[in-house]
């Protein structure tokens, strides 16, 4: 059983910090879900919503930072408390980046109307969908400090990398075959790249869950996965 701090205000501050990170993550998840919807429905009004919503996440990150620094300065936290705070700050930075990439995707949704390359768009939707699932799951792993789940999510990033690699090959071929497709292809490349980076930031969050619990960073040590990937050779080592 975990004991409470003798100074109860300290416990409250740590809980508040985690709650703020969750609030941020929750916003982030909403943004990504909306981005997925705009990709599917080409909803440019919703896309504008996403772009405007990014500033809220930025200000939440500032709140997390301020609170974390205040606790560090005033409480001199040690051991797991220290790891919780350091991890909260790092995760908040990851969520902020995820939100930025999501906004970048939204900025290009308007261009999709003119693009007729349907197969690559499907790949991007698939990547965004996987990323959204990973994000939702990693929040549960963080809440429950479930390191096994975190490790499983970490490995799931390979799926996104695989689709991204396929997307690259596909678009390169398209651009070689048809020079007029260079502009739309680079737009799609950019959107795909955003999804791929979101996946990477989610693996960072998963690493921090392991760090809070064990004090060690998870960097993909061998583990038993329920759904082991047969193709473990990763053409795009992502970190």
């Amino acid at each position: 059983m975990a004991k409470e701090h003798t100074v109860k205000a300290f416990t409250q501050e740590l809980k508040l910090l985690k709650a703020k990170v969750f609030e941020m993550a929750k916003e982030c998840e909403g943004q990504l879900a909306k981005a997925l919807q705009t990709l599917v429905e080409r909803d440019t009004i919703l896309a504008r919503d996403i772009i405007e919503g990014d500033s809220k996440i930025n200000s939440l990150q500032s709140e997390v930072d301020e609170l974390a620094i205040r606790i560090l300065a005033l409480r001199q936290p040690m051991a797991r408390d220290l790891r919780n705070i350091v991890a909260a700050q790092k995760m908040a930075a990851d969520f902020e980046r995820i939100a930025d990439y999501t906004a970048n995707i939204a900025k290009h949704v308007i261009d999709l109307e003119k693009i007729t390359l349907h197969k690559p768009i499907r790949s991007i939707v698939e990547m965004a969908n996987s990323a959204l699932q990973m994000l939702r799951d990693v929040l549960v792993a963080y809440q429950e400090l479930d390191t096994e789940k975190a490790a499983e999510i970490w490995h799931r990033d390979r799926e996104i990398d695989k689709i991204y690699f396929g997307l690259l090959t596909q678009l390169r071929t398209t651009m070689i075959e048809d020079s007029t497709s260079v502009a739309p292809s680079t737009t799609l490349l950019f959107m795909g790249r955003c999804c791929e980076r979101i996946g990477d930031h989610i693996t960072n969050v998963a690493e921090n869950v392991e760090y809070i619990v064990s004090g060690e960073m998870y960097h993909g040590r061998p583990m038993q996965l329920k759904s082991a990937h047969p193709d473990s050779s990763n053409p795009l080592s992502c970190q």
Binding site: K15, L16, A19, L145
Partner: peptide, 21 residues
């Protein structure tokens, strides 16, 4: 996914997690 989360639920070190480590 059952619960809504509140500040009170944000156990910095949930019980049970201390055990294995």
């Amino acid at each position: 996914i059952e619960k809504d989360l509140r500040v009170e639920d944000m156990e910095a070190t949930p019980s049970g997690q201390d055990g294995p480590v």
